[in-house]
């Protein structure tokens, strides 16, 4: 595999421009609710070899999954004889800007919804089809297709109003020291970003780049799958993908990236 952790450390001021066209904000002033001066995309912490893979869609292995999801988008499934396209026409226009504001409050359901929850709600209740596995391949691919329509737009997740309670819950989880190693997300991604932990160069743990193609497992990974991995690495009992805890955590972590560009599908080691 290319890149990984073995390559040279990247230029701190490298710019991410995709296809020579879409300019990404990978470093920007932190929102008021984040205790940093500057927030940084995970891209800025990767090696040059990994970074370049995200600069051209022909090199980005995550784009293959976007193509697969286009097929699914147009495939009729379920008891209602519908596909995503039946209601949302082409994703390019109907899904523009959607990724940037998720997770968000759904008034009808009276709940905070992640993109994955919304996709499965449409599958189950609009199409009469089986839900995708929350952090499975079909879901990751569909999220990539939806994310790509917002690439370059700033993450802009609401934290007040009806979501505030969930946001507070997510914040509490972020600062809780889990597992036998007693480590919180903040211990690694707030107190120690930019430090090496064994062979890993710690980032701020932002999710603006999700879903993420990882060279390590050669597939697209959802944010909840990453959360699971990070909690597991504290020698803790993890929460499951799609659990209320991870939904709250996703809302909170997403909001820490408000102002960074939507990057999904990104490439990481």
């Amino acid at each position: 595999l290319l890149g990984g952790t073995l390559g040279a450390s990247a230029d701190e001021n490298a710019k991410l421009v995709i296809n020579g066209d879409i300019e990404m904000v990978t470093r920007t002033k932190a929102p008021d609710h984040v205790p940093f001066d500057e927030i940084r995309s995970g891209w800025t912490f990767r090696t040059e070899e990994t970074q370049v893979l995200q600069m051209d869609d022909f090199d980005n292995p995550g784009m293959i999954f976007v193509d697969q999801a286009i097929d699914n988008w147009n495939t009729v499934e379920g008891s209602e004889g519908k596909s995503c396209a039946s209601c949302h026409q082409d994703a390019e226009s109907s899904m523009q800007g959607v990724r940037a504001v998720y997770p968000k409050w759904n008034e009808t359901a009276g709940e905070v919804r992640t993109l994955a929850m919304q996709v499965n709600d449409c599958r189950e209740n609009q199409m009469g089809a089986k839900p995708y596995k929350y952090d499975g391949g079909d879901m990751a691919a569909m999220e990539a297709l939806i994310s790509v329509q917002s690439r370059g737009m700033p993450v802009n997740v609401a934290i007040d109003g009806p979501v505030s309670e969930t946001w507070e819950q997510g914040k509490e989880i972020y600062y809780t020291r889990y597992g036998q190693l007693e480590l919180s997300c903040a211990n690694c991604h707030e107190d120690n970003y930019d430090n090496m932990i064994r062979a890993d160069h710690l980032s701020q743990g932002q999710i603006n780049g999700f879903p993420t193609y990882r060279l390590k497992n050669a597939k697209l990974n959802t944010a909840h799958a990453r959360f699971k991995g990070c909690v597991r690495d504290t020698r803790a009992e993890t929460f499951s993908a799609g659990s209320p805890e991870f939904v709250a955590l996703e809302l909170y972590v997403a909001s820490r990236g408000n102002g960074l560009s939507v990057e999904g599908p990104s490439v990481r080691n």
């Binding site: 889990y178 597992g179 036998q180 007693e182 699971k228 020698r235 803790a236 993890t238």
Partner: peptide
């Protein structure tokens, strides 16, 4: 511990 796990399995 809070949610102690069984080594690195992610299980309780």
């Amino acid at each position: 511990f809070v949610r102690a796990g069984d080594l690195y399995t992610g299980k309780a």
